[in-house]
Nucleic acid binder design. Sequence first.
DNA 1: CAGTGGTCTAGACCACCAG
DNA 2: TGGTGGTCTAGACCACTGG
Lengths: 241, 241
Amino acid sequence: MPKYEEIAGILRGRISDGTYPVNSMLPIQADLAKEFGVSRMTVKKAVELLAIEGLVFSKQGNGTKILNSSFWNKEDSKFRLNNYNGLTYDLKDDPRTLTSRIIEFSVEFPSKEIAERLQIELAAPVYKIIRLRLLDGKPYALEHTYMPCDLVPGLDDAVLLTSIYDYLWHRLGLKFAGSYRHITAEKPDSYDKDYLDCQKEDPVLQVEQVVYLENGRPIEYSRSRNRFDTRGYSLLDVKNN
Amino acid sequence: MPKYEEIAGILRGRISDGTYPVNSMLPIQADLAKEFGVSRMTVKKAVELLAIEGLVFSKQGNGTKILNSSFWNKEDSKFRLNNYNGLTYDLKDDPRTLTSRIIEFSVEFPSKEIAERLQIELAAPVYKIIRLRLLDGKPYALEHTYMPCDLVPGLDDAVLLTSIYDYLWHRLGLKFAGSYRHITAEKPDSYDKDYLDCQKEDPVLQVEQVVYLENGRPIEYSRSRNRFDTRGYSLLDVKNN
DNA sequence: CAGTGGTCTAGACCACCAG
DNA sequence: TGGTGGTCTAGACCACTGG
Protein backbone atom coordinates (compact mmCIF):
# COMPACT_ATOMS: atom_id res chain seq x y z
CA MET A 1 0.00 0.00 0.00
CA PRO A 2 1.38 3.42 -0.96
CA LYS A 3 2.37 5.77 1.84
CA TYR A 4 -0.27 8.33 0.90
CA GLU A 5 -3.05 5.79 1.32
CA GLU A 6 -1.68 4.75 4.67
CA ILE A 7 -1.52 8.37 5.82
CA ALA A 8 -5.01 8.99 4.49
CA GLY A 9 -6.20 6.09 6.61
CA ILE A 10 -4.60 7.52 9.74
CA LEU A 11 -6.09 10.95 9.12
CA ARG A 12 -9.47 9.36 8.41
CA GLY A 13 -9.29 7.68 11.80
CA ARG A 14 -8.41 10.91 13.58
CA ILE A 15 -11.35 12.64 11.95
CA SER A 16 -13.84 9.94 12.87
CA ASP A 17 -12.64 9.64 16.46
CA GLY A 18 -12.73 13.39 17.00
CA THR A 19 -9.00 14.02 17.29
CA TYR A 20 -9.61 16.51 14.51
CA PRO A 21 -13.07 17.88 15.36
CA VAL A 22 -15.60 18.89 12.73
CA ASN A 23 -15.16 22.48 11.57
CA SER A 24 -11.63 22.67 12.90
CA MET A 25 -8.56 22.95 10.70
CA LEU A 26 -6.33 20.04 9.76
CA PRO A 27 -2.69 20.60 10.78
CA ILE A 28 -0.81 22.24 7.95
CA GLN A 29 0.69 19.90 5.37
CA ALA A 30 4.26 20.82 6.33
CA ASP A 31 3.68 19.69 9.91
CA LEU A 32 1.97 16.48 8.83
CA ALA A 33 4.89 15.78 6.51
CA LYS A 34 7.27 16.19 9.45
CA GLU A 35 5.13 13.99 11.71
CA PHE A 36 4.93 11.13 9.22
CA GLY A 37 8.46 11.57 7.97
CA VAL A 38 7.44 12.05 4.34
CA SER A 39 7.58 14.85 1.82
CA ARG A 40 4.77 17.37 1.61
CA MET A 41 3.66 16.10 -1.80
CA THR A 42 2.91 12.74 -0.24
CA VAL A 43 0.82 14.40 2.45
CA LYS A 44 -0.99 16.41 -0.20
CA LYS A 45 -1.98 13.23 -2.06
CA ALA A 46 -3.37 11.81 1.18
CA VAL A 47 -5.39 14.96 1.84
CA GLU A 48 -6.69 14.86 -1.74
CA LEU A 49 -8.12 11.42 -1.10
CA LEU A 50 -9.99 12.72 1.94
CA ALA A 51 -11.27 15.66 -0.10
CA ILE A 52 -12.65 13.30 -2.76
CA GLU A 53 -14.51 11.45 -0.01
CA GLY A 54 -15.99 14.73 1.18
CA LEU A 55 -14.29 14.58 4.57
CA VAL A 56 -12.26 17.79 4.25
CA PHE A 57 -12.06 20.84 2.05
CA SER A 58 -8.76 22.50 1.16
CA LYS A 59 -8.52 26.11 0.12
CA GLN A 60 -5.38 27.75 -1.15
CA GLY A 61 -4.16 30.34 1.28
CA ASN A 62 -6.38 29.17 4.07
CA GLY A 63 -5.73 25.60 5.13
CA THR A 64 -7.84 22.48 5.16
CA LYS A 65 -11.12 22.28 7.05
CA ILE A 66 -12.77 19.20 8.53
CA LEU A 67 -16.30 18.96 7.14
CA ASN A 68 -19.40 17.58 8.78
CA SER A 69 -19.76 14.51 6.64
CA SER A 70 -22.17 12.62 8.86
CA PHE A 71 -25.00 13.10 6.41
CA TRP A 72 -23.65 11.23 3.41
CA ASN A 73 -21.51 8.70 5.26
CA LYS A 74 -24.40 6.87 6.88
CA GLU A 75 -26.56 4.06 5.58
CA ASP A 76 -26.91 5.83 2.26
CA SER A 77 -23.31 5.05 1.41
CA LYS A 78 -24.55 1.87 -0.20
CA PHE A 79 -25.98 2.34 -3.67
CA ARG A 80 -23.35 4.86 -4.66
CA LEU A 81 -23.70 5.54 -8.35
CA ASN A 82 -19.99 5.96 -8.73
CA ASN A 83 -17.96 2.87 -7.89
CA TYR A 84 -20.78 0.51 -8.69
CA ASN A 85 -19.75 -3.12 -8.82
CA GLY A 86 -23.00 -4.95 -9.07
CA LEU A 87 -25.72 -5.75 -6.59
CA THR A 88 -23.81 -8.56 -4.91
CA TYR A 89 -21.03 -6.16 -3.98
CA ASP A 90 -23.35 -3.37 -2.90
CA LEU A 91 -25.24 -5.67 -0.59
CA LYS A 92 -22.38 -7.75 0.79
CA ASP A 93 -22.66 -6.11 4.22
CA ASP A 94 -26.43 -6.05 4.18
CA PRO A 95 -28.19 -8.37 6.61
CA ARG A 96 -30.80 -9.17 4.00
CA THR A 97 -30.35 -12.13 1.67
CA LEU A 98 -29.86 -11.59 -2.04
CA THR A 99 -30.94 -14.37 -4.38
CA SER A 100 -31.31 -14.59 -8.14
CA ARG A 101 -33.76 -16.24 -10.46
CA ILE A 102 -32.97 -16.81 -14.11
CA ILE A 103 -35.80 -15.65 -16.32
CA GLU A 104 -33.98 -16.08 -19.60
CA PHE A 105 -30.52 -17.25 -20.64
CA SER A 106 -29.81 -17.55 -24.33
CA VAL A 107 -27.39 -16.76 -27.12
CA GLU A 108 -28.31 -14.60 -30.07
CA PHE A 109 -27.04 -12.12 -32.62
CA PRO A 110 -27.08 -8.57 -31.32
CA SER A 111 -29.50 -5.93 -32.47
CA LYS A 112 -28.00 -2.90 -34.15
CA GLU A 113 -28.25 -0.88 -30.96
CA ILE A 114 -26.63 -3.51 -28.79
CA ALA A 115 -23.87 -4.15 -31.33
CA GLU A 116 -23.09 -0.45 -31.25
CA ARG A 117 -23.06 -0.29 -27.48
CA LEU A 118 -20.78 -3.33 -27.23
CA GLN A 119 -18.66 -2.18 -30.21
CA ILE A 120 -18.98 -5.56 -31.93
CA GLU A 121 -20.09 -6.83 -35.33
CA LEU A 122 -23.70 -7.83 -35.98
CA ALA A 123 -22.40 -11.35 -36.62
CA ALA A 124 -20.76 -11.68 -33.21
CA PRO A 125 -23.03 -13.63 -30.87
CA VAL A 126 -23.95 -12.31 -27.46
CA TYR A 127 -25.36 -13.78 -24.31
CA LYS A 128 -28.80 -12.51 -23.41
CA ILE A 129 -29.53 -12.80 -19.74
CA ILE A 130 -32.59 -11.75 -17.79
CA ARG A 131 -32.26 -12.16 -14.05
CA LEU A 132 -34.66 -11.33 -11.28
CA ARG A 133 -32.88 -10.27 -8.10
CA LEU A 134 -34.71 -10.85 -4.86
CA LEU A 135 -34.02 -9.43 -1.43
CA ASP A 136 -35.29 -11.69 1.35
CA GLY A 137 -37.39 -13.32 -1.31
CA LYS A 138 -39.07 -10.12 -2.43
CA PRO A 139 -38.61 -8.82 -6.01
CA TYR A 140 -35.99 -6.12 -6.05
CA ALA A 141 -34.58 -5.56 -9.51
CA LEU A 142 -34.82 -7.04 -12.96
CA GLU A 143 -31.60 -7.09 -14.95
CA HIS A 144 -31.40 -7.40 -18.72
CA THR A 145 -27.79 -8.12 -19.60
CA TYR A 146 -25.93 -8.58 -22.89
CA MET A 147 -22.32 -9.76 -23.08
CA PRO A 148 -20.12 -10.69 -26.06
CA CYS A 149 -19.71 -14.48 -26.05
CA ASP A 150 -16.06 -14.40 -27.05
CA LEU A 151 -15.12 -12.39 -23.96
CA VAL A 152 -16.92 -14.61 -21.47
CA PRO A 153 -16.36 -18.33 -22.02
CA GLY A 154 -18.03 -20.86 -19.80
CA LEU A 155 -20.93 -18.78 -18.55
CA ASP A 156 -23.60 -21.07 -17.11
CA ASP A 157 -26.56 -21.20 -14.75
CA ALA A 158 -24.39 -21.71 -11.69
CA VAL A 159 -22.60 -18.43 -12.33
CA LEU A 160 -25.80 -16.56 -13.05
CA LEU A 161 -27.30 -17.70 -9.77
CA THR A 162 -24.45 -16.14 -7.78
CA SER A 163 -22.48 -13.15 -9.05
CA ILE A 164 -21.46 -12.56 -12.64
CA TYR A 165 -18.95 -9.95 -11.51
CA ASP A 166 -17.25 -12.43 -9.20
CA TYR A 167 -16.90 -14.84 -12.11
CA LEU A 168 -15.45 -12.22 -14.43
CA TRP A 169 -13.10 -10.91 -11.78
CA HIS A 170 -11.87 -14.01 -9.99
CA ARG A 171 -12.28 -16.81 -12.52
CA LEU A 172 -11.52 -15.04 -15.78
CA GLY A 173 -9.20 -12.42 -14.31
CA LEU A 174 -10.91 -9.63 -16.22
CA LYS A 175 -10.40 -6.12 -14.91
CA PHE A 176 -12.79 -3.25 -15.39
CA ALA A 177 -11.56 0.15 -16.47
CA GLY A 178 -14.82 1.98 -15.88
CA SER A 179 -18.39 2.30 -16.94
CA TYR A 180 -20.96 4.64 -18.40
CA ARG A 181 -24.42 4.87 -16.88
CA HIS A 182 -27.67 6.49 -17.85
CA ILE A 183 -30.48 6.83 -15.33
CA THR A 184 -34.11 7.27 -16.30
CA ALA A 185 -37.59 6.74 -14.98
CA GLU A 186 -39.75 4.44 -17.06
CA LYS A 187 -43.21 3.01 -17.24
CA PRO A 188 -43.36 -0.68 -16.36
CA ASP A 189 -43.27 -3.16 -19.24
CA SER A 190 -44.75 -6.64 -19.20
CA TYR A 191 -41.62 -8.14 -17.63
CA ASP A 192 -41.80 -5.63 -14.79
CA LYS A 193 -45.43 -6.42 -14.18
CA ASP A 194 -44.79 -10.16 -14.22
CA TYR A 195 -41.65 -10.32 -12.13
CA LEU A 196 -41.31 -7.10 -10.13
CA ASP A 197 -45.01 -7.15 -9.21
CA CYS A 198 -45.39 -3.67 -10.68
CA GLN A 199 -48.85 -2.20 -11.06
CA LYS A 200 -49.67 -0.20 -14.17
CA GLU A 201 -48.98 3.12 -12.45
CA ASP A 202 -45.81 2.01 -10.60
CA PRO A 203 -42.71 3.75 -11.96
CA VAL A 204 -39.48 1.87 -12.67
CA LEU A 205 -36.04 3.33 -12.00
CA GLN A 206 -33.78 2.17 -14.82
CA VAL A 207 -30.00 2.22 -14.88
CA GLU A 208 -28.59 1.57 -18.32
CA GLN A 209 -24.94 0.63 -18.18
CA VAL A 210 -21.95 -0.17 -20.36
CA VAL A 211 -18.94 -1.64 -18.58
CA TYR A 212 -15.48 -1.40 -20.15
CA LEU A 213 -12.41 -3.55 -19.70
CA GLU A 214 -8.89 -2.21 -19.32
CA ASN A 215 -8.24 -2.83 -23.01
CA GLY A 216 -11.12 -0.56 -23.90
CA ARG A 217 -13.56 -3.25 -25.01
CA PRO A 218 -17.09 -3.14 -23.63
CA ILE A 219 -17.92 -6.33 -21.82
CA GLU A 220 -21.47 -5.66 -20.75
CA TYR A 221 -24.52 -3.71 -21.74
CA SER A 222 -27.29 -3.94 -19.22
CA ARG A 223 -30.50 -2.36 -18.08
CA SER A 224 -31.23 -2.71 -14.40
CA ARG A 225 -34.87 -2.02 -13.63
CA ASN A 226 -35.68 -1.29 -10.01
CA ARG A 227 -38.95 -1.05 -8.15
CA PHE A 228 -39.43 2.64 -7.40
CA ASP A 229 -40.20 2.07 -3.74
CA THR A 230 -37.22 -0.07 -2.83
CA ARG A 231 -34.27 1.69 -4.35
CA GLY A 232 -32.58 4.96 -5.18
CA TYR A 233 -29.05 5.88 -6.12
CA SER A 234 -26.85 8.47 -4.48
CA LEU A 235 -23.81 10.41 -5.55
CA LEU A 236 -21.28 12.67 -3.91
CA ASP A 237 -19.89 15.38 -6.16
CA VAL A 238 -16.82 17.28 -5.00
CA LYS A 239 -15.56 20.35 -6.82
CA ASN A 240 -11.81 20.53 -7.17
CA ASN A 241 -10.99 23.99 -8.41
CA MET B 1 -3.62 28.11 -15.91
CA PRO B 2 -1.33 25.40 -14.54
CA LYS B 3 1.05 23.70 -16.95
CA TYR B 4 -0.57 20.31 -16.50
CA GLU B 5 -3.94 21.65 -17.64
CA GLU B 6 -2.33 23.28 -20.65
CA ILE B 7 -0.60 20.03 -21.58
CA ALA B 8 -3.82 18.09 -21.02
CA GLY B 9 -5.48 20.45 -23.48
CA ILE B 10 -2.81 19.87 -26.12
CA LEU B 11 -3.03 16.09 -25.69
CA ARG B 12 -6.81 16.28 -25.82
CA GLY B 13 -6.51 18.07 -29.16
CA ARG B 14 -4.13 15.47 -30.55
CA ILE B 15 -6.50 12.70 -29.55
CA SER B 16 -9.53 14.32 -31.11
CA ASP B 17 -7.75 15.22 -34.37
CA GLY B 18 -6.33 11.71 -34.72
CA THR B 19 -2.66 12.53 -34.16
CA TYR B 20 -2.94 9.88 -31.48
CA PRO B 21 -5.36 7.36 -33.02
CA VAL B 22 -7.85 5.37 -31.01
CA ASN B 23 -6.40 2.13 -29.62
CA SER B 24 -2.84 3.33 -30.12
CA MET B 25 -0.46 4.12 -27.28
CA LEU B 26 0.27 7.58 -26.00
CA PRO B 27 3.99 8.45 -26.15
CA ILE B 28 5.66 7.50 -22.89
CA GLN B 29 5.57 10.11 -20.15
CA ALA B 30 9.31 10.64 -20.25
CA ASP B 31 9.18 11.62 -23.92
CA LEU B 32 6.22 13.93 -23.38
CA ALA B 33 8.08 15.55 -20.51
CA LYS B 34 11.02 16.17 -22.82
CA GLU B 35 8.78 17.52 -25.58
CA PHE B 36 7.00 20.00 -23.32
CA GLY B 37 10.06 20.84 -21.29
CA VAL B 38 8.51 19.87 -17.98
CA SER B 39 9.11 17.21 -15.39
CA ARG B 40 7.48 13.84 -15.68
CA MET B 41 5.25 14.44 -12.66
CA THR B 42 3.66 17.33 -14.51
CA VAL B 43 2.99 15.13 -17.52
CA LYS B 44 1.52 12.49 -15.25
CA LYS B 45 -0.97 14.99 -13.79
CA ALA B 46 -2.02 15.93 -17.31
CA VAL B 47 -2.53 12.31 -18.27
CA GLU B 48 -4.52 11.76 -15.08
CA LEU B 49 -6.95 14.45 -16.18
CA LEU B 50 -7.48 12.67 -19.49
CA ALA B 51 -8.00 9.39 -17.66
CA ILE B 52 -10.71 10.95 -15.49
CA GLU B 53 -12.46 12.11 -18.65
CA GLY B 54 -12.32 8.56 -20.01
CA LEU B 55 -10.08 9.49 -22.96
CA VAL B 56 -7.14 7.23 -22.04
CA PHE B 57 -6.32 4.40 -19.72
CA SER B 58 -2.93 4.04 -18.05
CA LYS B 59 -1.60 0.73 -16.84
CA GLN B 60 1.55 0.33 -14.85
CA GLY B 61 4.14 -1.58 -16.81
CA ASN B 62 2.35 -1.18 -20.09
CA GLY B 63 1.84 2.43 -21.09
CA THR B 64 -1.22 4.56 -21.75
CA LYS B 65 -3.84 3.61 -24.32
CA ILE B 66 -6.12 5.93 -26.26
CA LEU B 67 -9.70 4.80 -25.71
CA ASN B 68 -12.63 4.99 -28.06
CA SER B 69 -14.59 7.64 -26.19
CA SER B 70 -16.93 8.60 -28.99
CA PHE B 71 -19.86 7.01 -27.23
CA TRP B 72 -20.02 9.13 -24.09
CA ASN B 73 -18.57 12.31 -25.50
CA LYS B 74 -21.46 13.04 -27.85
CA GLU B 75 -24.77 14.71 -27.22
CA ASP B 76 -25.20 12.82 -23.99
CA SER B 77 -22.45 14.83 -22.38
CA LYS B 78 -25.08 17.27 -21.22
CA PHE B 79 -26.95 16.16 -18.13
CA ARG B 80 -23.87 14.78 -16.48
CA LEU B 81 -24.79 13.83 -12.96
CA ASN B 82 -21.40 14.77 -11.72
CA ASN B 83 -20.48 18.43 -12.20
CA TYR B 84 -24.07 19.56 -12.15
CA ASN B 85 -24.49 23.33 -11.96
CA GLY B 86 -28.15 23.83 -12.53
CA LEU B 87 -30.35 23.66 -15.58
CA THR B 88 -29.29 27.05 -16.91
CA TYR B 89 -25.70 25.88 -17.10
CA ASP B 90 -26.51 22.45 -18.52
CA LEU B 91 -28.56 24.00 -21.30
CA LYS B 92 -26.44 27.04 -22.10
CA ASP B 93 -25.32 25.59 -25.43
CA ASP B 94 -28.71 24.13 -26.24
CA PRO B 95 -30.62 25.74 -29.10
CA ARG B 96 -33.86 25.41 -27.16
CA THR B 97 -35.06 28.23 -24.94
CA LEU B 98 -35.23 27.75 -21.18
CA THR B 99 -37.75 29.84 -19.27
CA SER B 100 -39.01 29.75 -15.72
CA ARG B 101 -42.34 30.28 -14.06
CA ILE B 102 -42.65 30.94 -10.35
CA ILE B 103 -45.28 28.72 -8.77
CA GLU B 104 -44.52 29.66 -5.18
CA PHE B 105 -42.06 31.96 -3.47
CA SER B 106 -42.35 32.37 0.27
CA VAL B 107 -40.48 32.41 3.56
CA GLU B 108 -41.19 29.94 6.33
CA PHE B 109 -39.69 28.00 9.22
CA PRO B 110 -38.14 24.73 8.08
CA SER B 111 -39.63 21.35 8.80
CA LYS B 112 -37.51 19.03 10.91
CA GLU B 113 -36.30 17.18 7.82
CA ILE B 114 -35.30 20.31 5.97
CA ALA B 115 -33.61 21.82 9.01
CA GLU B 116 -31.54 18.68 9.28
CA ARG B 117 -30.60 18.69 5.62
CA LEU B 118 -29.59 22.36 5.75
CA GLN B 119 -27.93 21.96 9.16
CA ILE B 120 -29.85 24.92 10.63
CA GLU B 121 -32.08 25.55 13.63
CA LEU B 122 -35.84 25.12 13.40
CA ALA B 123 -36.11 28.84 14.17
CA ALA B 124 -33.98 29.89 11.19
CA PRO B 125 -36.24 30.96 8.33
CA VAL B 126 -35.82 29.52 4.85
CA TYR B 127 -36.93 30.51 1.40
CA LYS B 128 -39.36 28.08 -0.16
CA ILE B 129 -39.32 28.24 -3.93
CA ILE B 130 -41.26 26.22 -6.45
CA ARG B 131 -40.30 26.89 -10.05
CA LEU B 132 -41.54 25.35 -13.24
CA ARG B 133 -38.82 25.14 -15.89
CA LEU B 134 -39.97 25.14 -19.48
CA LEU B 135 -38.07 24.21 -22.61
CA ASP B 136 -39.40 25.97 -25.71
CA GLY B 137 -42.50 26.61 -23.66
CA LYS B 138 -43.08 22.96 -22.79
CA PRO B 139 -42.99 21.78 -19.15
CA TYR B 140 -39.66 20.23 -18.40
CA ALA B 141 -38.93 20.10 -14.68
CA LEU B 142 -40.47 21.24 -11.45
CA GLU B 143 -38.01 22.38 -8.79
CA HIS B 144 -38.81 22.57 -5.09
CA THR B 145 -36.00 24.54 -3.46
CA TYR B 146 -35.23 25.53 0.14
CA MET B 147 -32.43 27.94 1.08
CA PRO B 148 -31.45 29.50 4.42
CA CYS B 149 -32.47 33.17 4.33
CA ASP B 150 -29.36 34.39 6.12
CA LEU B 151 -27.09 33.00 3.41
CA VAL B 152 -28.97 34.49 0.47
CA PRO B 153 -29.96 38.13 0.98
CA GLY B 154 -31.90 39.96 -1.68
CA LEU B 155 -33.49 37.02 -3.43
CA ASP B 156 -36.42 38.22 -5.55
CA ASP B 157 -38.61 37.36 -8.51
CA ALA B 158 -36.16 38.77 -11.04
CA VAL B 159 -33.49 36.34 -9.86
CA LEU B 160 -35.85 33.39 -9.78
CA LEU B 161 -36.88 34.05 -13.37
CA THR B 162 -33.31 33.74 -14.60
CA SER B 163 -30.71 31.62 -12.80
CA ILE B 164 -30.38 31.29 -9.03
CA TYR B 165 -26.91 29.83 -9.45
CA ASP B 166 -25.76 32.85 -11.43
CA TYR B 167 -26.97 35.11 -8.63
CA LEU B 168 -25.21 33.12 -5.93
CA TRP B 169 -22.03 32.87 -7.93
CA HIS B 170 -21.64 36.27 -9.56
CA ARG B 171 -23.60 38.62 -7.29
CA LEU B 172 -23.01 37.13 -3.87
CA GLY B 173 -19.61 35.62 -4.66
CA LEU B 174 -20.56 32.31 -3.07
CA LYS B 175 -18.53 29.29 -4.09
CA PHE B 176 -19.73 25.72 -3.99
CA ALA B 177 -17.61 22.98 -2.50
CA GLY B 178 -19.75 20.11 -3.70
CA SER B 179 -23.09 18.45 -3.47
CA TYR B 180 -24.87 15.27 -2.53
CA ARG B 181 -27.58 13.84 -4.76
CA HIS B 182 -30.12 11.09 -4.49
CA ILE B 183 -31.98 9.85 -7.55
CA THR B 184 -35.30 8.06 -7.40
CA ALA B 185 -38.36 7.34 -9.51
CA GLU B 186 -41.63 8.59 -8.04
CA LYS B 187 -45.31 8.63 -8.72
CA PRO B 188 -46.59 12.04 -9.76
CA ASP B 189 -48.06 14.26 -7.05
CA SER B 190 -50.67 16.95 -7.55
CA TYR B 191 -48.04 19.56 -8.47
CA ASP B 192 -46.64 17.28 -11.15
CA LYS B 193 -50.08 16.70 -12.59
CA ASP B 194 -50.90 20.41 -12.58
CA TYR B 195 -47.65 21.81 -13.92
CA LEU B 196 -45.73 19.02 -15.65
CA ASP B 197 -48.87 17.74 -17.37
CA CYS B 198 -48.28 14.32 -15.86
CA GLN B 199 -50.93 11.69 -16.19
CA LYS B 200 -51.63 9.40 -13.27
CA GLU B 201 -49.40 6.64 -14.64
CA ASP B 202 -46.53 8.90 -15.79
CA PRO B 203 -43.39 8.35 -13.70
CA VAL B 204 -41.35 11.25 -12.38
CA LEU B 205 -37.55 11.20 -12.19
CA GLN B 206 -36.56 13.00 -9.00
CA VAL B 207 -33.13 14.34 -8.09
CA GLU B 208 -32.88 15.31 -4.45
CA GLN B 209 -29.89 17.52 -3.83
CA VAL B 210 -27.98 19.28 -1.05
CA VAL B 211 -25.39 21.83 -2.18
CA TYR B 212 -22.54 22.81 0.13
CA LEU B 213 -20.45 25.97 0.29
CA GLU B 214 -16.71 26.04 0.77
CA ASN B 215 -17.18 26.70 4.48
CA GLY B 216 -19.12 23.48 4.80
CA ARG B 217 -22.57 25.04 5.22
CA PRO B 218 -25.40 23.69 3.08
CA ILE B 219 -26.92 26.44 0.99
CA GLU B 220 -29.64 24.53 -0.82
CA TYR B 221 -31.89 21.57 -0.44
CA SER B 222 -33.93 20.86 -3.52
CA ARG B 223 -36.00 18.28 -5.28
CA SER B 224 -35.96 18.48 -9.06
CA ARG B 225 -38.82 16.53 -10.57
CA ASN B 226 -38.49 15.70 -14.26
CA ARG B 227 -40.95 14.34 -16.75
CA PHE B 228 -39.84 10.77 -17.44
CA ASP B 229 -39.94 11.19 -21.21
CA THR B 230 -37.82 14.32 -21.49
CA ARG B 231 -34.84 13.69 -19.32
CA GLY B 232 -32.30 11.26 -18.01
CA TYR B 233 -28.97 11.66 -16.25
CA SER B 234 -25.67 10.13 -17.22
CA LEU B 235 -22.48 9.39 -15.43
CA LEU B 236 -18.97 8.30 -16.35
CA ASP B 237 -17.23 6.20 -13.73
CA VAL B 238 -13.50 5.59 -14.08
CA LYS B 239 -11.62 3.13 -11.91
CA ASN B 240 -8.24 4.32 -10.71
CA ASN B 241 -6.56 1.34 -9.16
C1' DC C 1 14.43 -9.02 -19.37
C1' DA C 2 13.70 -4.13 -20.77
C1' DG C 3 10.53 -0.66 -20.44
C1' DT C 4 6.50 1.34 -18.56
C1' DG C 5 3.80 4.00 -15.20
C1' DG C 6 3.34 4.61 -9.88
C1' DT C 7 5.43 6.54 -6.02
C1' DC C 8 8.38 9.48 -3.43
C1' DT C 9 11.83 13.10 -2.21
C1' DA C 10 13.70 17.66 -0.78
C1' DG C 11 13.59 21.24 -2.16
C1' DA C 12 11.50 25.83 -4.66
C1' DC C 13 8.34 29.48 -6.15
C1' DC C 14 3.81 31.19 -6.52
C1' DA C 15 -1.32 32.44 -5.80
C1' DC C 16 -4.29 33.24 -2.55
C1' DC C 17 -6.39 34.49 1.88
C1' DA C 18 -6.95 36.28 6.54
C1' DG C 19 -5.31 39.53 9.73
C1' DT D 1 2.23 40.78 5.63
C1' DG D 2 2.75 35.96 6.99
C1' DG D 3 1.21 31.68 6.31
C1' DT D 4 -1.33 28.47 3.64
C1' DG D 5 -2.08 25.14 -0.09
C1' DG D 6 -1.10 24.63 -5.37
C1' DT D 7 2.34 23.78 -8.58
C1' DC D 8 6.67 22.27 -10.30
C1' DT D 9 11.39 20.27 -10.60
C1' DA D 10 15.08 16.77 -11.39
C1' DG D 11 16.03 13.35 -9.95
C1' DA D 12 15.31 8.21 -7.74
C1' DC D 13 13.47 3.63 -6.82
C1' DC D 14 9.88 0.32 -7.32
C1' DA D 15 5.91 -2.67 -9.22
C1' DC D 16 4.19 -4.34 -12.86
C1' DT D 17 3.72 -5.84 -17.75
C1' DG D 18 4.87 -7.99 -21.89
C1' DG D 19 7.88 -10.54 -24.77
